[in-house]
Design a binder for these strands. Structure first.
Length: 447
RNA sequence: UCCUCGGUAGCUCAAUGGUAGAGUAGGUGGCUGUUAACCACUUGGCUGCAAGUUCGAAUCUUGCCCGAGGAGCCA
């Protein structure tokens, strides 16, 4: 075939070559295809070269025979290095000797661009400092590639989940006049002659939107200027925050459960190759099916104490506590009814126990920690005014929020989910920084 | 902010007071089925910065810079 094409001067770009992507290559068995991408790995022997091509959809082994492509092209191939950009044409063959069971016998190849010097990220092990400084290139590595594909699938699944349930997508502002919850440190920015802050949560705005639309959610970046330095923290991260009017704590817990099940099962169904690339043991993900265990804060404290952990009622759980609690269960666990003092000012008090509020956290298994926090919101105007004083928040900044209680207040609630924590858990990544394209952490804002 | 660990070749690391080394990447040559290919040869260094101790410092001391893990706080 290639000889015929060359002999007749026909082997130009489009001749009998269907453009294809690596991911769908098995459907083109026996056909001549055109692929374009980057050199992932090259093993050139005397008269035979194995060139692994990465095209964004996957990686495939191509085989270049000196006799097939001629001296000139073969010599050119031997000068290529990792990440050179190329376009090639050849015949797809199913072959057991090739990784992935399919390969392309190349008959023509052109170089789109060569690599200047050497590519910094070799196939050997690298340290995290180096990789993060080369994040713009690290994105090309197969596990990072797979992680961001899963992130994309998760984001799509989130929108589909809410769309199917008649939630309205409402964007929250990024510039805010004051702290939403008054607890964490915010990033301050100049706002003309005034000061504004980058949002730490869209929740209060979602409460307003829920009174307009019934069921709403926002999905956007949030910012925390905390000096946290752990594998669970970023200064900029993405959060999904649904909010429902006429909903109580049980409705919020039901939604959280259905939501997590739906997202995880969707990734299992649509991203098996990515999870395999990530060497993720999927058995724990397969167990993410309703119903999830639900324990009260009191019961969780008892679990810890029975295990011999020193833990005082009234404290918040630290990361080791969360891991110890989740170790009792084989799927995410909902912890509800928390001490009032450690939760946000807007939480609704538990009518059965005034020390508690109707909040819920969802702790993911395998040490992934808290992925969801939420609950039922306080509706009583007098109570909220007290809380604002108690937390030393500026009441003027919350007048609009208090209006929601003045004009047709109804029971309502919702939760916030940290996207990177969810993606890191699903992907089995140790650190959330791999679950976002360009992580922003305490000591790193580049690239 | 606090605690712990680290910084040596492009990268990953070794060298515990006495000539700075290996693997890998890069370069050259060989090889028609490689799978982290292999074989031979080869380029590559202000040991994070500054001062000190010492005949002699990558190594010991002090200070600083940079990064990582964790705590607190949170998603």
């Amino acid at each position: 075939m290639a000889d015929y094409i060359r002999a007749n001067g026909l082997y130009r770009r489009d001749f009998v070559a269907t453009s294809a992507t690596v991911r769908e290559l098995k459907q083109h068995d026996g056909q001549r295809v055109e692929l374009q991408g980057w050199v992932y790995k090259l093993r050139a022997k005397g008269k035979l070269a194995f060139l692994h091509l990465r095209d964004g959809s996957g990686i495939v082994q191509t085989i270049v025979n000196k006799q097939e492509v001629g001296e000139e092209v073969f010599a050119r191939i031997k000068t290529l290095t990792q990440e050179a950009a190329i376009r090639l044409r050849g015949t797809v063959k199913l072959d057991e000797r090739a990784p992935g069971g399919v390969e392309v016998a190349v008959d023509d190849l052109e170089v789109v661009s060569e690599v200047e010097g050497e590519y910094p990220i070799s196939l050997q092990a690298h340290g995290i400092d180096f990789l993060l400084s080369k994040r713009h290139l690290w994105l090309r590595s197969s596990q990072q590639h797979a992680t961001l594909r899963v992130r994309s699938e998760v984001i799509q699944a989130i929108h589909d989940f809410f769309y199917a349930r008649q939630f309205v997508h409402v964007d929250a502002p990024v510039f805010t006049p004051a702290a939403c919850e008054g607890t964490t440190n915010l990033f301050e920015v100049k706002y003309f002659d005034d000061t504004a802050y980058l949002t730490q949560s869209g929740q209060l705005y979602m409460e307003a939107a829920a009174m307009a639309h019934g069921k709403v959610y926002c999905f956007g970046p949030t910012f925390r200027a905390e000096r946290s330095k752990t594998r669970r923290h970023l200064t900029e991260f993405w959060m999904v925050e649904p909010e429902m009017a006429f909903a109580g704590l049980d409705d919020v817990m039901d939604l959280a459960e259905e939501f997590l099940e739906s997202i995880v099962q969707r990734v299992l169904e649509r991203c098996p190759e990515e999870l395999a690339t990530l060497e993720r043991d999927t058995s724990s993900l397969e167990r993410v099916k309703r119903p999830f265990p639900r324990v009260t804060y009191d019961e969780a404290v008892k679990l810890l104490q029975d295990q011999g952990h020193e833990f005082e009622w009234g404290n918040d759980f630290g990361a080791p506590d969360e891991t110890a609690i989740s170790a009792h269960f084989d799927r995410p666990v909902l912890v509800h009814r928390w001490p009032k003092a450690i939760k946000a000012f807007y939480m609704r008090p538990d009518p059965d126990d005034e020390r508690l509020v109707l909040g819920v956290d969802v702790i993911a298994p395998e040490g992934a920690g808290e992925v969801i926090g939420g609950g039922e919101r306080a509706t009583d105007l007098g109570f909220l005014l007290e809380q604002i004083k108690l937390h030393e928040l500026p009441q003027e900044a919350f007048e609009w929020y208090l209006d929601l209680r003045r004009y047709g207040s109804v029971p309502h609630g919702g939760f916030g989910l940290g996207l990177e924590r969810l993606v890191a858990w699903i992907c089995g990544r140790e650190h959330v920084r791999e679950a976002i394209p360009f992580p922003r952490t305490l000591y790193r804002k580049e690239p």
